[in-house]
Design a protein around this nucleic acid. Sequence first.
DNA 1: AAGGTTATTGGAAAGGCTTCCACAATATTG
DNA 2: CAATATTGTGGAAGCCTTTCCAATAACCTT
Lengths: 343, 343
Amino acid sequence: MGVTIYDIAREANVGIGTVSRALNNHPKIAAKTKNRILEISRRLSYQPHAYAQGLAKRKTNTIALIMPFFTNYFFVEVLQGIQDKISDLGYDIMLYGVNQTNQVEEYLKRALQKGKVDGILFFSMKLPDGFDAKLKEIQLPTILVDTYHPDFDSITVQNEEGAYVATRYLVKLGYKKIGMINASLDSEPARMRYNGYRRALDEAKLPFSERYFRISKHSKADGFNREAGYQAMAEIIDKNREDLPEAFFISSDIQAIGALNAMKDRKLTAPEDIAILGFDDIELAKHIGLTTMRQPMYQMGVLAVEKLFHRIQNNEFPPSHTTFSPTLIVRETCGTEKKQPKS
Amino acid sequence: MGVTIYDIAREANVGIGTVSRALNNHPKIAAKTKNRILEISRRLSYQPHAYAQGLAKRKTNTIALIMPFFTNYFFVEVLQGIQDKISDLGYDIMLYGVNQTNQVEEYLKRALQKGKVDGILFFSMKLPDGFDAKLKEIQLPTILVDTYHPDFDSITVQNEEGAYVATRYLVKLGYKKIGMINASLDSEPARMRYNGYRRALDEAKLPFSERYFRISKHSKADGFNREAGYQAMAEIIDKNREDLPEAFFISSDIQAIGALNAMKDRKLTAPEDIAILGFDDIELAKHIGLTTMRQPMYQMGVLAVEKLFHRIQNNEFPPSHTTFSPTLIVRETCGTEKKQPKS
DNA sequence: AAGGTTATTGGAAAGGCTTCCACAATATTG
DNA sequence: CAATATTGTGGAAGCCTTTCCAATAACCTT
């Protein structure tokens, strides 16, 4: 069917080894044989067979991306960073979009299949039990993004710190009754954000009230979804009509959008009635004027690829961990201050 | 390094052919040999080598997705449909996200590489010259989504019709000065939407005015991006202060969001000052109350995968073309009517 | 018990490439 | 010009499977 190196070898009156050398510009080959072969292979529009090459070289030039998928805008942006960087390097991306948590193991197993990919980028989810050992055993380079394990390279955001900064900002603006709408505590980032929130509250000697705290019911995306935000806010408002909180720290922008929606349906606005502070700085936050904590998503994608390549080339160094600090982006939903951090 | 069928064969005292048969539950094998082999292969935690298998079977169980990538939310949703469907079928996805138009050919060439994928899903872009012939020559099953070529299966949306319905709706609401903000005319959908808009205008005997028409300057995503929408609207408003249009049909929701932003910055609101009608019904349209034309994105993804599988199994039938009609989703940005189509 | 089936099995060949080893051809040196 | 070093080349072996063909073993028949 397709043209093989044997066809080229016959055409050029050389051995297949020579053809291979010409094609891979190996040093030990005479310039003119090489050119002749190249010319012929162009004429026959030869294409190496990807799998045959992969099998012989023990290298796939492909990496796997395992990421929560839903409509979580966080990932679209990280994905762009990854795509841009990886194209340059001539690699391909095998995408495993996780829609339900039970798919994680399934996808990991597939990606681990011998000879399928050269490395894995694993996102925002806890590495399922047992896979840490397995990954180390088969020595498949793996980078964790937005999640952590001591034995693997990782890139994370200071979630606890970010939540702390966010909440402290609300305190500084003078709010006393500060609630939080959180995603599911199954999610590590959600737990950390909760901790930061509590720390800021404690430090300011403000009371924590269960009445102003909700965890997502909608389990989609671990609770990082709009419906969950809507429902949590609706519930809090409806149950506390006579004594509303003044401000909310919400664990993601997408939930904040839902929460704002719930407020709007109840004729409440931010920041006049309730101040809202999100997390992520997704692209649409700018549009709706949401004050939020920004994560450098694109850069995280780029860095993830860089780390992975490092490790693909040489896996003999200890894990490195990079953390980014989220930055406060002041817009309108908390009321504004005089001195604004750069937006 | 890894366990191979030779290891299993030795362990089980059988030939490699027998091992292979056991693993692929081939009929011609004695039940107990099969069980013994299966048991051993489990014990050694054998994993077939993906590439060796692919090479021998001439089948990769992988398909390529070539799609515009940017932050175009349209694709996130189509992607979900694809991912869900394809996982069930045990296939993997090779993702090629196009950020700049010049990457298209590069990616196509890669995906066409012999033995790399079993089929291609090609999205929303014109198939570059010459590739139609090449695809047919190598007989790689290909489905076009949101774009068209007579010789390939395709799934499209009636863009012309959608734009016509949209514009006619604005006419029916009584608007006379109806502008349009369009994406780049390099894009086929953009051209069709323009045609539909003009047809509705002509039919209503309303004049078309260059003053109320803009094409995206920002070339990112062929002009389907927020900045382009913002800029176009800003320009129109600023140049026509004394004689603003009453309504706009805008070629995508994401541009509409930008346009609304530009209005907001100029203290104009929809629908009070200017009515806005978008296209796509991305998830966030609901949140901001944008009246728009809905494309059944998730279903398009699912159908695309189904068509592709059909063709992977048997490529011997003529191309089939499916088109979906977009439906009008009435929300708030055009003013509301009594009788609302289902939202 | 001999002959004829049928059910299993072993393993070579094929899939298309890279790489290594041995040999041939050419160039260099004294 | 012979001896030696250098360059270039052919092709077998290896990467790991699947698949096909031939061979063996087990089972029936009469």
